[in-house]
């Protein structure tokens, strides 16, 4: 659990240099408001980026500089959840890490939920002369760990090994989703920078195990979860 609590620090640490650098390169302390203000105006033709510096991929940038910031709610990953992520495979794969919070109003003690997820989006369609982007379909998976001192462990000294087969803290799940984004300028490499809203319709291992042992007894609609979020390209 102690290791898990270090995760948000890691997230913060990865954010700081990125924020500092993007602020410096934009020559204004507030990149977001600049981007928003610039959005409705005609965008200047971007300088053709030098091919060597522009590839979108995990190796193109230092690991500590994430490609996007995320703010999310629900999907079983927190009431309020923030994270960072990377885009690779020519924009088709997003790999995100998030830290979520659920207050004690909804739990014995507050929960910290740390999630890693990967999603594959085969199509990104430009809409309205490229001012908008639509990702009609994504499919992905996640693994999450819940830290909460009041949560009764299903695997610890109270039981002999194998008493309960599942972990009460680790969840694995899958989802499908979609995203619609507004292009708001370009990033340092000349790629479109977007601010997008996404949804994820998913489920988890325990719900799946409930439905697979009750085919016909439990409806698919009963095991679904829904989450919403916003992704902002750095």
């Amino acid at each position: 659990m102690r290791r898990a609590l270090l995760l948000p620090l890691l997230l913060l640490a990865s954010l700081l240099p990125a924020a500092a650098q993007s602020a410096a390169s934009a020559a204004t302390p507030d990149t977001l408001s600049l981007a928003l203000a610039a959005a409705p105006a005609a965008e200047p033709e971007p300088a053709e980026p030098a091919a060597a510096v522009a590839p979108t991929g995990l190796t193109a940038q230092p690991w500590y500089r994430p490609h996007h910031l995320i703010l999310q709610t629900a999907a079983g990953q927190g009431l309020i959840t923030a994270g960072v992520g990377y885009t690779t495979l020519r924009g088709r794969v997003d790999i995100d890490v998030l830290a979520g919070y659920v207050p004690s109003k909804y739990s014995i003690t507050p929960m910290g939920i740390f999630t890693a997820k990967a999603a594959y989006s085969p199509w990104t369609l430009p809409v309205a002369q490229g001012r908008w982007q639509l990702r009609p379909f994504s499919v992905g998976g996640f693994v999450s760990h819940t830290a909460s001192s009041g949560l009764n462990n299903s695997r610890d000294g109270k039981y002999e090994k194998g008493y309960y087969w599942w972990s009460s803290r680790t969840r694995v799940g899958g989802f499908v989703g979609g995203k619609v984004s507004r292009v708001i300028g370009r990033n340092r490499y000349g790629h479109p920078r977007t601010l997008g809203a996404y949804y994820e319709l998913g489920t988890n291992d325990l719900y799946l195990s409930s439905i697979f042992t009750n085919l016909g007894g439990l409806g698919v609609h009963e095991i679904l979860t829904l989450g919403f979020g916003v992704k902002f390209d750095l």
Binding site: A74, A75, G78, L79, V102, Y106, T225
Partner: peptide, 13 residues
């Protein structure tokens, strides 16, 4: 208010 919205499977809402 909908059932789909879940902050955690362990929530007590």
């Amino acid at each position: 208010g909908c059932d789909l919205i879940e902050f955690s499977p362990n929530e007590t809402r």
